[in-house]
């Protein structure tokens, strides 16, 4: 079961790095741990045979959004370094909330899906896999079935860009 071993390693790395994102005392380290989380999630997409989403994850998240985050840190923090004031005083209640939510979600998921298996794609040929759920299929779907949502999203992205420029501009 090589894919299960790969999943185990990726899940462990993602969880530990995500925990560091929310607990570290250095803002820049939080951004760098976020890179690890995003990269492992991208690898999980590859494991699920979603290679285009994996590429987008690396390009958009690590390439663009992370750079935005680093710029945000740079612009809002005159001194880069360890900082004790990053957490507020409701850390314990937040931890309890998170654990409670995890308990509820895990119970519901185990109850709903039990040990349902993902379809085994190992036996499918690479050509068939690419044709039915690969990049070509995703592109076809975006520009046929999901054309209207795609255009709406592009207008929304434009509006967000204009809004961000208007907000951040000095005048």
């Amino acid at each position: 079961m090589p894919e299960n071993i790969a999943f185990g390693i990726l899940a462990l790395v993602a969880t530990l790095a995500a925990l560091r994102v929310v607990t570290t005392r250095n803002v820049v380290h939080a951004a760098l741990y976020l890179v690890v989380v995003l990269a492992t999630v991208g690898a999980l997409y590859v494991l699920l045979a979603a290679e285009f989403v994996a590429a987008v994850q690396i390009l958009i998240y690590i390439g663009a959004i992370l750079v935005l985050f680093l710029f945000g840190i740079m612009l809002t923090r005159p001194t880069i370094g360890t900082d004790t004031g990053l957490d507020n005083d409701q850390r314990w209640i937040a931890g309890v909330t998170g654990l409670f939510l995890l308990g509820v979600l895990s119970f519901v998921l185990v109850d709903a899906f039990g040990d349902e298996q993902l379809p085994d794609l190992g036996g499918v040929s690479r050509e068939a896999l690419t044709a039915e759920r690969g990049t070509a299929a995703v592109g076809d779907a975006i520009f046929s079935t999901y054309l209207v949502p795609f255009e709406v999203v592009s207008v929304l992205l434009l509006a967000a860009l204009v809004g961000a420029i208007v907000l951040a501009r000095r005048d």
Partner: peptide, 16 residues
């Protein structure tokens, strides 16, 4: 692979 592997990892990341 179980589908729950991914869903529970998603739940863990969500709660974090």
């Amino acid at each position: 692979m179980l589908v729950n592997q991914f869903l529970i990892l998603g739940a863990v990341l969500f709660c974090i």
